[in-house]
Design a protein around this nucleic acid. Structure first.
Lengths: 210, 210
DNA sequence: GTCTATAGGAGGATAGAC
DNA sequence: GTCTATCCTCCTATAGAC
């Protein structure tokens, strides 16, 4: 009888770390750093508490690992905004991608929101600078569109934050959305409708037809 | 020598409860329910911990009192949206009032955001219904404007949530805004600029000139 | 109404057997 | 790499003197 090889140490580590992080992001997103108990993370991971400490020295270490990983999510949706695309096309692709991210990664979105709500105490200045740089690049694209007469002269930072807020809302404040729409939870159709509404109002408001 | 009368029991109670609630909303808004320690509230109130328990039986009692009180903030800014005003005037008044609320009541806004982020566990169904009713009234106003041909046909719930999100953002995500704008904190000018941007893009996008 | 003291329990973190 | 047992700190909440 052929025995399947036992997983190597490295594989066990990778698997267990992943379990812990997956459980942790959920609990942190709901209760924040101080409200989260290691025992809860351990239970949700299916690991004993001592094992959590075997993989991560402190609660901070878990939290910081998550902050670092989720920061890349910040970049991804922004990739749609590039100067050589037409603004309507680029911005609606961004809105769509961000709403999809909100829909499919509710927990990660909320984790990030929670951290920001608390003033970003766990963000290193390097990470803040990264967010700033990434955003500034996109702001410059918007400025370029304005210069080319493709958009009305809005303040690009605030314009950008408006889009971010309108899309982030559906992950962070699902409760508010559900109460407003009188539903127990949001469906794909609701996200589609959100997309239509944002595109229609925002883009028709600031784009200049050729 | 004339002695000033000592304050009555009722006055002492009112004053101390106010101190406690003021300290509590700040800490809850930063750390959430589970992350907040009564000792911290006591320190911030300038009262001994046992006195906090004298005025409020449990941590829940403090939190619920705050939820109940802050729910009225939800209504107030909405009062601007009434059918007999012109939509541009009414909506820009709403945006202005909501941004002012975000600017002047950052802590209360964040407390509310925190509660929503956690799924509104502390909201009674009566309170949810209240939010729903208040919102629906305004949604009907928007529907009326659309019927009158004063606005393009947007989905009014999502339109409304977009406005809420765009304005709430400046209270909840001050950190993101500050990082984006490369400042240590936001000034009045930044809020004015936010107002201009939201009004310009959203209203020009959905209003129909007469 | 104020405050000290403390019960009773939970949480973060570690030691050390397996 | 896993897990039990445990240390020690800190928390919620209460008792009871003043």
């Amino acid at each position: 009888m052929v025995m399947s090889k036992p997983p190597s140490d490295a594989r066990i580590r990778a698997r267990n770390e992943a379990k812990i992080l997956k459980a942790a992001v959920k609990i942190f997103s709901l209760k924040g750093f101080d409200g989260t108990r290691i025992a809860e993370i351990a239970d949700a991971s299916g690991l004993p508490k001592a094992n959590v400490y075997y993989y991560f020295a402190t609660k901070e270490a878990i939290y910081e690992t998550l902050v670092e990983r989720l920061l890349t999510g910040w970049d991804k949706t922004l990739e749609h905004i590039v100067a050589d695309r037409e603004p309507r096309e680029a911005l609606s692709a961004y809105i769509h991608a961000k709403l999809e991210y909100s829909r499919r990664h509710v927990i990660e979105s909320r984790f990030f929101a929670n951290e920001m709500l608390r003033g970003g105490r766990f963000l290193s200045s390097g990470q803040k600078k990264h967010m700033q740089d990434i955003t500034r690049e996109r702001v410059e694209v918007i400025e370029e569109w304005i210069r080319q007469g493709k958009m009305v002269a809005v303040e690009p930072n605030h314009f950008f934050m408006m889009l971010w807020a309108a899309t982030q809302f559906y992950a962070d404040f699902t409760t508010v959305a559900a109460v407003t729409l009188n539903k127990s939870q949001l469906t794909r159709d609701d996200y589609d409708c959100a997309y239509e509404t944002i595109v229609k109002t925002v883009l028709d408001g600031c784009l200049i037809a050729e």
